[in-house]
């Protein structure tokens, strides 16, 4: 039911963990649905210098989280914001239909982390 790429990212997830003193943190999902994704960012000169994830969820939830970190590492914040869930699924060679809604939230978690980063920037400039 999963592509080889999904299974690769599930069995060998990239960038698992949490960044110490991150510049931004985002968490989406809820335990009722069985998917929670948490992303932490280190941003330098408007680029994502480091990104790590922690995910509670199914194979698709873990694989999409891993793929997002790989896709945006080294990218600018604007480029990261342009990434959406559909693109993540495509990068994995597709996801089973029923997983597209419930488990494909990793880009949302990334966006939440960036929003947190921007919020902190605003507060710091005050």
């Amino acid at each position: 039911m999963y592509t080889e790429k999904v299974m690769d990212h599930f069995m060998h997830p990239r960038n698992v963990g949490e960044i110490d003193n991150p510049d931004g943190v985002g968490q989406v999902g809820n335990p009722v649905c069985g998917d929670i994704m948490k992303m932490s960012l280190r941003i330098k000169d408007d680029r994502i210098e480091d990104i790590k994830f922690k995910t509670f969820g199914c194979g698709a939830a873990i694989a999409t989280s891993s793929m997002v970190t790989e896709l945006v590492k080294g990218k600018t914040v604007a480029e990261a914001l342009a990434l959406n869930n559909r693109m993540v699924a495509e990068a994995l060679g597709g996801l089973p239909c029923k997983k597209m809604h419930c488990s494909n939230l990793a880009a949302d978690a990334l966006h939440a982390a960036i929003a947190d980063y921007k919020e902190k920037q605003v507060q710091a400039s005050r």
């Binding site: 299974m7 599930f10 069995m11 998917d35 199914c58 194979g59 939830a61 873990i62």
Partner: peptide
């Protein structure tokens, strides 16, 4: 606790 069943099944299947 703290983990989800499908990812457990996939890992066991591997």
């Amino acid at each position: 606790e703290f983990i989800e069943g499908e990812s457990l099944l996939l890992s066991l299947d591997m």
